[in-house]
């Protein structure tokens, strides 16, 4: 295995242009890649470490939105005042993410490109309608995160392309994240979800509501049926919570059964939404 650590974006793109696309692997934090090597995955011929490129890290305020470099660590997000104040759901996801040693290495770009159905930063990014910025030999493009992730471990990245950053519109409204794991730390989520809501406190209705849930389908899913039914509405949440079923397709696995996932998602989501709409 040859190891490369380019120090600039042009150097990286030049390098990727010269490598056989089937033979290289990109390395960010390594917290998902290294256990795969450990469990017997064949080493790539070329390993390209992205951590030498400074412009891939950092949280930048761009006025109407913020741009997070793909190599920004989970811990850097967790320690960011901007994230804490304006993107509460994402902040909560980073706070509940694995444990310190992993948060110090794992990156938001890695969490996105790993495209796990259970990735903890993903429901908040979906709920904020995040866009991902991709660079490559043919130039730059921007796509909604929901179009970028196409299945477990699958993304819309073309050969020689790199995830450069993720862009979050400054959310109008309150956001919150919930994670159900089998223990508090180091848990792969049994279910997780994020809610972005604008609530009319007087009328106790949702003026705007976006819900994204993870670990209940091959990719994170928007719960649009339920969110639609709660538009300008806030009553009878228990009566319509079963609308969730129309947007999800959970499976049985070692962590939980599909039936448990459905039940847990509906119960916790109903509780969360009622708290949100009734909060003073």
């Amino acid at each position: 295995m040859k190891y490369y650590r380019p120090v600039s974006e042009p150097e990286l793109l030049d390098l990727l242009g010269t490598l056989d696309q089937s033979n290289y692997t990109l390395l960010a934090g390594g917290t998902d890649l290294m256990p795969r090597f450990e469990s017997g995955m064949e080493l790539p011929l070329h390993l390209v470490d992205l951590k030498g490129i400074d412009c891939f890290s950092g949280i930048n305020d761009r006025g109407d939105n913020i741009e997070i470099g793909s190599l920004t660590t989970i811990d850097a997000l967790r320690k960011s005042d901007l994230i804490h104040q304006s993107f509460q759901a994402l902040w909560q996801a980073t706070d509940q993410f694995a444990a310190t040693q992993i948060r110090n290495r794992a990156t938001i770009g890695g969490n996105i490109c790993n495209a796990s159905p259970a990735g903890d930063t993903l429901p908040p990014l979906y709920a904020y309608q995040a866009q991902v910025r991709i660079i490559g030999p043919a130039g730059e493009r921007q796509v909604p995160i929901a179009d970028f992730i196409s299945g477990p471990g699958k993304t819309a990245l073309n050969p020689s392309e790199i995830l450069f950053s993720v862009i979050l519109p400054k959310a109008a409204g309150f956001s919150t994240f919930y994670k159900l794991g089998l223990r508090q730390a180091m848990a792969v989520s049994v279910i997780n979800f994020a809610v972005v809501a604008v609530v009319d406190r007087e009328k106790k209705v949702f003026n705007k509501l976006t819900i994204a849930a993870g670990s209940v389908a091959p990719t994170v899913k928007y719960l649009n049926k339920l969110a639609g039914a709660l538009q300008n509405n806030g009553n009878g949440i228990d009566g319509i919570i079963d609308l969730v079923d129309q947007d999800i397709s959970p499976i049985d696995d070692i962590r939980a059964t599909a039936a448990y996932r459905r039940k847990a998602l509906k119960n916790i989501l109903a509780f969360t939404l009622k708290e949100l709409v009734n909060k003073r």
Partner: peptide, 22 residues
């Protein structure tokens, strides 16, 4: 595989799992 922390070292002032780093 980065679950247990027995291999924790401090790398540039931050704790990391040394089994997850080349």
């Amino acid at each position: 595989e980065g679950e247990c922390g027995a291999c924790t070292v401090i790398l540039n002032g931050e704790t990391v799992n040394s089994c997850l780093i080349l």
